[in-house]
Amino acid sequence: MHEHEHDHDEHGHHHPRSASEAELRTRALEALLVEKGIVASDAIDAVIDHYVNDVGPQNGARVVARAWSDPAYRERLLADGTAAIAELGYGGEEGQTMVVVENTPDTHNVIVCTLCSCYPWPVLGLPPTWYKSPPYRARVVAEPRSVLREFDLELPAATEIRVWDSTAEVRYLVLPQRPAGSDDLSEDELAALVTRDSMIGTGVPRAPAAV
């Protein structure tokens, strides 16, 4: 299962046989449709931007903010992450299973994919480069505490660190602890506190005053 997922990274020598022809055709079609008023180039830019950048951490942030605001949702989320995330309209086209792991004062969770770079795309968007790097993948399992320290995350010695190894079948999402002083915030305001790294486990949410 993981073998073919490496294709993209390891077979960069594929020949884009008809790429230039298709590229010209794409340009010609765009020019035609713009001329006819059917598409606008900035609308295309917006779609591309959305797919490359926006379908990302803010989906996960909404999931986290809902869990912080709604105890019943939190329970559903921890019991069946895939279904609870789907309630908010997010899901994977690949049908992968989402498992949500909750940080508590005693336990801190971190996600990794030791084999390649499996990542909960529907809720977190594109993985950061370091997530795909061999040093992170190897070291976060062997020495999580020192890796987290490199992310400026210093955990109390008594906190247990659990590392969750993602696979093509199961993707994890960390439910971070709700920051102190956030009691009066709306769900939208809470979502703004949730960072991508806090949902990977290499960070914690922003403090309310920092927003």
Partner: peptide, 11 residues
Amino acid sequence: WQARALGLGVV
């Protein structure tokens, strides 16, 4: 161009 093709198609 592949991202461009995707965006063009969607719009």
